[in-house]
Design a protein around this nucleic acid. Structure first.
Length: 270
DNA sequence: AAGGAACCCAACCGCTGTAAC
DNA sequence: GGTTACAGCGGTTGGGTTCCT
C-alpha cells in the first residue's frame, strides 16, 4: 500500500485565509521553519491542507517578498526572460528576487501581455504581429559553466557548454525601437525563438564515432533506445559521464529543469 | 448615483515527476 | 513493481475593486 493521506479533506477550510490563520502559519514557520507541508497544518493547528499552507506562505506570507508595483526594469527583464523561457514562471521568478511565480504570472497576464500587444508584438511568440514573416537575424549566446581551455577530458565532461541562438527581429515598431535602443548595448533583443545545439566538444566527439546524427541524438538524447545512428547504446564509445552530461545538457535545457550544474539564475545575455 | 464592464490577484485545480510504502 | 501521496508547477477561476457610461 502507499502512504497515508496528508489530510482529511472533509475537515479542511477553503477560500480566503483569515488573519488568524495567517498568524498561526507565520508563527509556526518562524518557530519550526519550512519543512514537511504534510504535517504542518495539524502541528500548527490549522484546518487547511498542506498544499494550501505552502501556497499561502510562498505567495503571500514569506518575509522576503517584495510587495508593490513592478518597476520598468523588472518589466523588461520579465519580457526578456519570457522570450527565452516561455511560461516557466518559477524560473523567471528565480531571476526576480522577492517576486513569486504566481505574482509574475498574474502580472504577465494582466499588464505585460497588453503592453506587448500595444507594441505590436505577439506575447506568445515575441514576434511582430503585423509582419510575422519578418526574417530574423540570429544572435548566438553561449553559456559555459567552466573554462573553455580545459584540456583534461574528465574536466571537460563536467563542463556545460550550451549554445543558444536567439532570433532577433530585423524590424521593430516605433515603440519597440525605444526599448531596443535602451537595451541593445548590453542585451540583444530577445523577441526570440530558442534553438539548442548540443555541446560543441560532444558533437565533435560523436561525429568522430558515427557519420551522422539520428533524430534522437540530434535532440541530445544519445542513450535513447530510439537511437538509430548505428552506435550501440553506451557501447558507442561514449564514456558514461559523456552520455549523462549530454542528457543533462539536452534534456534539462529543453525541459528547463535545473540542477546544481546548470543554474538559470546565472543566465546572462551577452 | 447606479450598474455593468473591465481589471486584479489570491486561491484553487489538475497535471507531472519523485519518493514512500 | 505497483500504488499512492507529496511537492512543485502552470493554468484557470471567482470574488473584490476600480473604471466607465
Amino acid at each position: 500500500m502507499g502512504r497515508s493521506p496528508c489530510c482529511e479533506k472533509a475537515h479542511t477550510n477553503k477560500g480566503a485565509w483569515t488573519k488568524e490563520e495567517d498568524e498561526r502559519l507565520i508563527s509556526y514557520i518562524r518557530a519550526h521553519g519550512e519543512g514537511c507541508w504534510r504535517s504542518l497544518p495539524k502541528a500548527a493547528g490549522l484546518l487547511r491542507c498542506g498544499k494550501s499552507c505552502r501556497l499561502r506562505w510562498i505567495n503571500y506570507l514569506r518575509p522576503d517578498l517584495k510587495r508593490g508595483n513592478f518597476t520598468e526594469e523588472e518589466d523588461e527583464l520579465i519580457i526578456k526572460l519570457h522570450s527565452l523561457l516561455g511560461n516557466k514562471w518559477s524560473l523567471i521568478a528565480g531571476r526576480l528576487p522577492g517576486r513569486t511565480d504566481n505574482e509574475i504570472k498574474n502580472y504577465w497576464n494582466t499588464h505585460i501581455r497588453r503592453k506587448l500587444l500595444s507594441r505590436g508584438i505577439d506575447p506568445t511568440t515575441h514576434r511582430s504581429i503585423n509582419d510575422p514573416t519578418t526574417i530574423p537575424k540570429v544572435t548566438t549566446i553561449t553559456f559555459a559553466a567552466a573554462h573553455e581551455n580545459i584540456k583534461d577530458i574528465d574536466q571537460q565532461d563536467e563542463m556545460i557548454n550550451i549554445k543558444a541562438e536567439f532570433i532577433e527581429t530585423s524590424k521593430e515598431s516605433d515603440n519597440n525601437e525605444i526599448i531596443q535602443e535602451k537595451s541593445s548595448s548590453c542585451l540583444p533583443d530577445l523577441n526570440l525563438e530558442l534553438r539548442i545545439s548540443p555541446p560543441h566538444h560532444q558533437q565533435l566527439d560523436h561525429h568522430r564515432r558515427s557519420s551522422s546524427l539520428c533524430f534522437t541524438c540530434s535532440l541530445g538524447i544519445q542513450n535513447s533506445k530510439d537511437c538509430s545512428c548505428g552506435s550501440e547504446s553506451n557501447g558507442n564509445g561514449w564514456s558514461n559521464n559523456m552520455v549523462s552530461m549530454n542528457i543533462m545538457a539536452g534534456y534539462d535545457f529543453l525541459g528547463l529543469k535545473t540542477n546544481g550544474l546548470l543554474d538559470y539564475r546565472t543566465l546572462e545575455t551577452k
